[in-house]
Simulated assay, not measured.
Amino acid sequence: MTAYIPSITLPRFLFEQPAASIILPVAAGAAVGYSTRPDETQKTYRALRQPPFHPPAWLFGPAWTTLYALMGYTAHRAWSIGANSVNPATVALAKQGATLYTIQLGLNLVWMPLFFSLNRPIAAAVDIVALGGTVGYMAYVWGQVDETCGWLLAPYLGWLSFATYLCVGAGYLNNWDLKSAKSAKSAKSAKTKKRN
């Protein structure tokens, strides 16, 4: 069971201020997305063999932006309700959730570089499974602070389940070797262009 660990938890003001709570994950997610070069990420996504029901690459940006804003709002709500409670157990749960929130945000933000920049699908799969478990536990903890907070994290958990399927599916279908899959697709495209 994870406890409240102040040294690894985001500062209180990021939970107390609604704008900061929402802007932080949206801005951090956008920064990671742009740092991994969206044009290269989309090329990689299209080059890989994908499992059935994979969405178009353009869908990920709007989906993650919405989920980041929702998780930020949930963090603010859970902290505000929990920190202002007269029940010490509720206060402790709100703080414990804040530590879990910080951990899950870190796990979330490292997935994209692991998968797309470093071409480490096994590490990315381990990361996303750990992320799903952390978010599930966070939903349980913050759901005890405020039931609505638990439910607000349901879309995030649903998307993470789907993203885990996509991550593991793409890893498996490409023999857990993304570099070779991208190289093979580039070579095939070059041959096709020469023929035309």
Score class of each variant (00 low, 15 high):
residue 124 A to K: 00
residue 92 A to I: 02
residue 156 Y to K: 08
residue 87 N to D: 15
residue 122 I to S: 13
residue 179 K to Y: 12
residue 90 T to I: 15
residue 36 T to W: 06
residue 92 A to Q: 08
residue 120 R to Y: 02
residue 187 A to S: 14
residue 155 P to N: 05
residue 162 F to H: 02
residue 99 T to W: 03
residue 9 T to E: 07
residue 181 A to Q: 03
residue 119 N to H: 15
residue 56 P to Y: 03
residue 6 P to R: 10
residue 119 N to E: 15
residue 103 I to W: 01
residue 168 V to K: 04
residue 126 V to A: 13
residue 43 K to G: 08
residue 82 G to V: 00
residue 193 K to F: 11
residue 21 S to T: 11
residue 19 A to G: 06
residue 102 T to H: 02
residue 100 L to E: 14
residue 59 L to Y: 09
residue 111 W to D: 04
residue 37 R to C: 11
residue 76 H to W: 06
residue 53 F to E: 12
residue 160 L to Q: 05
residue 75 A to P: 00
residue 179 K to Q: 15
residue 33 G to F: 14
residue 104 Q to V: 01
residue 127 D to G: 02
residue 35 S to R: 10
residue 138 M to P: 00
residue 159 W to T: 09
residue 123 A to V: 01
residue 100 L to C: 05
residue 63 A to I: 15
residue 77 R to H: 13
residue 150 G to N: 08
residue 96 Q to W: 05
residue 114 L to Q: 05
residue 58 W to S: 06
residue 51 P to C: 11
residue 40 E to I: 08
residue 35 S to T: 14
residue 57 A to M: 00
residue 153 L to H: 10
residue 182 K to A: 15
residue 90 T to A: 13
residue 72 G to M: 05
residue 56 P to Q: 06
residue 22 I to W: 03
residue 114 L to C: 05
residue 191 K to H: 11
residue 22 I to G: 04
residue 170 A to L: 11
residue 4 Y to D: 04
residue 66 T to H: 10
residue 125 A to C: 12
residue 85 S to N: 12
residue 46 R to I: 07
residue 127 D to S: 12
residue 141 V to I: 11
residue 42 Q to L: 12
residue 43 K to F: 10
residue 23 I to M: 12
residue 157 L to I: 14
residue 161 S to M: 08
residue 73 Y to Q: 08
residue 180 S to H: 12
residue 189 S to P: 02
residue 31 A to T: 13
residue 125 A to R: 00
residue 97 G to T: 06
residue 16 E to V: 04
residue 161 S to E: 02
residue 131 L to F: 11
